[in-house]
Simulated scan of single mutants.
Amino acid sequence: MQPFFSTEEVHPKTAFRRWREMVCERLAPAALQADDAELFRGKLEVTSIGSVPISHLAYTRLRTEATADMIRQSRRDNRVYAILRLSGNASYQQGDQEAKTRPGDLVVLNARPTVCMMDANSSLLLDLPRERIETVLGSSRLFSAHTISGALASTTLAHTYLRELVRVGDKLTPDAAERMASIGIDLIVASVAERMAQEVPRSMHGNVTVQRAKAYVEAHLGDPSLDPPHLAAAMGMSLRRLQELFHERGRHISDYIWERRLEMAGKRLSDPACAHLSIGMLAYGCGFASQAHFARRFKERHGMSPREYRQAHRQNVPSVASAFGRSFRSAK
């Protein structure tokens, strides 16, 4: 990670004010209060793994509040924040929901008024697209400001993976970084889904089970063995019961899996970072057993072959040279 700001480089009388200004500009507008401003110490390191901005924050005791007006000002209601607690304790309150976290725990916050109380601590903060998370888990109001315990196996795995990813991130190629970041998001989704499955009202159990199943699908799309029986076994239930739950929501399990695989394939075909991948490699990476099977399903979905789809998107992306030329001409 790259150092971004440290109060060690600032006079103690102005350190907290500078920290407050930096947080509001870099992360999100908020009202910050320290027990003793002149004794406050803080450090921020930043990086991006693929398209996911990640911040490492370490600071002394602090209270933070984001009001509705501040959230509107930030214009970031399309984001959610996953916070992995590395050291110290913290509490987060949104509405009538409060999460108390210890080292190893995880919490997700959405764009709502929030009050945070933190002891001297450090954490990793991931800035994530809300749509990506809600596509699998449903509205973020269902899981924001809930303590996701580090005792859960999925949370332990997410912590270990993301800390290691941050450590080696600068050694990854852009394509590998994007893929690794996507896996990290899937692990966070799996942790949230496992937490949601605990102590839910029986009337909500079907919704939570389907959300857990979708989270599992997202994390295993590249596995060609992923099919309805495999998914049911992973959920610890009969295939018939899982099919009933999907049918109640107007879906078929197999259709959902293939739709997600085709959506992933479409994104990779249109992504310049994946241009070096052959159609066959891309198909296998999205869980298709053969290139012919992939080509047939893709054409049924998009009305053109994978190769034609890739070429069409290349034509819609201006080259760096032509973009530079336009900028140079406009500057003249």
Rank of each mutant, 00 (worst) to 15 (best):
T155Y: 09
K13M: 08
R75V: 11
V320H: 00
P53S: 15
M281I: 05
H220T: 06
T155C: 07
A331E: 10
V317K: 07
R314D: 04
V317F: 13
R296G: 04
E308R: 02
E45W: 10
R75Q: 15
Y92T: 02
L242S: 09
G287R: 02
H252Y: 13
L269G: 01
T155P: 05
S144C: 00
A30W: 05
Q311W: 05
A99N: 08
I279D: 05
I257Y: 04
V80L: 11
S319Q: 14
V217N: 04
R249E: 03
I185Q: 15
Q2L: 12
V46R: 08
G88W: 15
S290L: 03
R212H: 09
H56W: 02
I71G: 04
N78W: 10
R17K: 14
R301N: 04
Q243R: 09
V320Y: 01
A219S: 03
A234K: 13
E25K: 06
H11G: 15
R241G: 03
Q243I: 11
F5N: 07
V320L: 02
V46Y: 11
A58E: 09
T67D: 00
S6M: 06
R141W: 02
G285L: 03
D96E: 14
G95T: 08
F288D: 10
S238V: 03
D77P: 03
A90T: 14
R268E: 02
D271C: 01
I279K: 02
L269W: 01
E194P: 02
E248P: 01
D35A: 12
R76N: 05
Y59L: 15
R167I: 07
P306A: 04
A111S: 13
P201W: 01
L32R: 07
V217L: 10
G236D: 15
T209C: 07
L226I: 06
D223H: 12
T64M: 03
R301I: 07
S144P: 00
S51H: 08
M196V: 14
E21D: 15
M235A: 15
A90S: 12
Q2N: 14
G287H: 02
K214C: 12
V208F: 08
H302A: 10
L221E: 01
E98M: 13
C116I: 09
I183A: 00
E21I: 13
A111Q: 14
S330Q: 10
I185L: 14
Q97W: 14
L84R: 02
S225H: 07
E9W: 02
K100D: 02
M281L: 06
K171W: 08
E308H: 05
A283G: 09
G206L: 14
R102G: 06
T114W: 07
S225C: 04
A219H: 01
A30Q: 06
A234N: 08
Y161N: 14
V317N: 07
R76G: 07
S290D: 05
H146W: 06
G138D: 04
E98H: 10
L231I: 14
T67C: 00
E263G: 14
G250R: 00
S154R: 15
T155N: 08
A82S: 01
S278I: 06
Y81R: 02
I188L: 07
T47V: 05
L126A: 15
S270Q: 00
G222M: 12
D77E: 12
A323P: 00
A176S: 00
C286M: 11
L242P: 02
F288H: 13
A265I: 11
R260W: 03
H220G: 01
S87H: 04
